[in-house]
Amino acid sequence: MSLVEDLLAGDKRAAAKLISLIEDGDEEATEVIRAIYKETGKAQTVAVSGPPGSGKSTLIHRLAQAFRRRGKTVGIIAVDPTSPLTGGALLGDRVRMGDLTADEGVFIRSMGTRGRLGGVSAATSDAINVLDAFGSDVIFVETAGVGQTDVEVAALTHTMVVLLMPGAGDDVQAFKAGIFEVADLFVVNKADRGGAEAVAADLEVMVGMGEETGWVPPVLLASGLRDDGIAEVADQVEAHFAHLAESGGLEAKRRTRVEREILGALAESIQARGLALRSGTAFSDWVDRVLQKDASPREAAQGLLETLGPEG
C-alpha cells in the first residue's frame, strides 16, 4: 500500500493515481478507501454550483487564491459532463485556473460525470476523501453546471455555494425547487454587468421566506473576472463552517454524508448485480411474461430482486 503512504506524505502523484483507481472502479480501490478513511474529516468542503457559463471555474480560481493568501492549502475537483453517447468528455475547467497549477499548495483534478446525474460522478465523494487525507484544508467541488438539479453534491459537502448571473430568467426561477433549497450562500456573479442588484433583490425575498435554521443564506455580489467581492465570499464560506461547528451541524452533515455514501455504494452494487442477471434465463423468462402481458415490468423487477441472495 505504498501509494497510500505516499498520499499521506503529501505526494501529488499518489493522490492523482488513487483518484484514477477509484474512478476506474479498480478492485484495489475498496482497500485504498478503507486505508485512507480514518485520515479524513479534517477539510472544509465547499460545493460550487450554478448554470453553465455562470462563472464557477473563475470564482473557484479567485476563491482558491483568497484561501491561499489566508494560509490554507486548496484542493479542487472540477466535474464536467460525460457524453452519454460516446463515454468521452471534454474537461475544460483548468482553462480558467491556469496559474494555480504552478502553486505547490493547490491540487486540481478534472472528472467526467461518467453516467451519473446530479452534477457529480460516483467517484466524487471518494475523490474528496483522497484530497482530505492528502491534506487539503479547503476542498472545492465544481459541479457539471446542470444547475437546478445538482442537489446530490450538497449532501457530500459542508457548504453549498450557488452561483447566479444577471440576465438569466425572472424571479420565479428563484422559487423553484432544487439547488435553491440547499444553498448556504448565494453569489450573483458577473456583477460588473447590469442587472445583478435586481437578481440579488429577488433572492433576498426568497431567502427571507426560508425556514428558521439559525443560518440565513447570505446573498453576495461578486465579479470573478475583476476579482471584486471575493474576500466577502471567502469570509462567508468560513462563517458558514464556523456556524456548523457551533450549532452541531457538522455532526449532522457527517451523518448525512455517510448515509449518502452507503446508499450510493448500495445502489451501485445492486445495479451491477441486477445488470448481471440480464444474461440469465430467469431474466428472459420475465421478459417473455411481460411481453405476453402476463406481468408488468415492475412485477418482473420484484421477482428478480427476490432472486438476489447474498453475494457469491
Binding site: 460516446t86 471534454l90 483548468r94
Partner: peptide, 19 residues
C-alpha cells in the same frame, strides 16, 4: 478524442512546459 470516448483535459493557451 472526446468523440472517440476519451476524457480530454484541455488546459488552454500559453502554458509553460512546467505547468
Amino acid at each position: 478524442l472526446r468523440d472517440a470516448g476519451m476524457e480530454v483535459i484541455y488546459t488552454g493557451l500559453h502554458q509553460t512546459p512546467e505547468d
